[in-house]
């Protein structure tokens, strides 16, 4: 019995480290996109500059939504660990609602920019901007799908070792996306207005 439990714990720790290594490769991906954005930032090809079209107040609301959803994701893992399944599901639903709010704000910003003719084809700056921010947005979309699946899984299975492990990996992913957003907010949105 004991060796079986030990083997399970070892397997979970390996899974967690493996997923962590994937996140580290994602850091390199985002670092490349940040470098691209910063190099192309002033190549506006007579189009609008970052200060003309990026609104820090709007991005600040996005930041609050994503930060709050990162917090509730942490609470969900904590609740599941202490077998409070209903609290865990509630916190997870909160995470997804706030995440969906963030994504809606981001997409409506994109729609407005493209509607004014400032699409990714207009200048190198806009190409870099859309690539960086939309890559983050795609990660958020995948996270929302993953989170919905997790809700169904926990609803069905309750608080087991497997559901705790799966939810822990999801929370790592979600916290990581919030970390990336801190730098998008600082460098892209706040940096535009200095």
């Amino acid at each position: 019995m004991n060796s079986v439990t030990n083997r399970k714990i070892e397997k979970y720790e390996k899974a967690e480290l493996g997923f962590w290594l994937y996140l580290m490769t994602d850091v390199v991906l985002f670092a490349s996109l940040f470098a691209t954005y910063m190099v192309l930032k002033n190549s506006t090809a007579a189009g609008p500059t970052a200060a003309d079209i990026l609104d820090p107040t709007y991005a600040f609301f996005e930041t609050i939504a994503l930060l709050a959803s990162s917090f509730t994701a942490g609470v969900a893992v904590l609740a599941l660990r202490f077998k409070r399944v209903r609290l865990a599901i509630g916190a997870l639903v909160g995470t997804l609602v706030l995440g969906a709010l963030f994504l809606t704000l981001e997409i409506s910003e994109f729609v407005e920019l493209v509607g004014h003719g400032h699409a990714w084809t207009q200048s190198a700056f806009l190409s870099g901007f859309f690539t960086l921010v939309a890559t983050h947005g795609i990660h958020i979309t995948i996270g929302l799908i993953w989170g919905s699946v997790m809700i169904a899984y926990i609803f069905k299975k309750g608080s087991t070792a497997d559901s705790l492990r799966k939810l822990t990996l999801f929370s790592l992913f979600w916290h990581f996306l919030d970390l990336v957003w801190i730098f998008i907010f600082t460098i892209v949105y706040l940096g535009a207005h200095l």
Binding site: P56, T57, F60, T63, I64, L67, I182, F185, T186, L190, G191, H193, L194
Partner: peptide, 8 residues
């Protein structure tokens, strides 16, 4: 976050 926002 708020501090950074106000600063900018």
């Amino acid at each position: 976050s708020a501090a950074g926002y106000l600063l900018a």
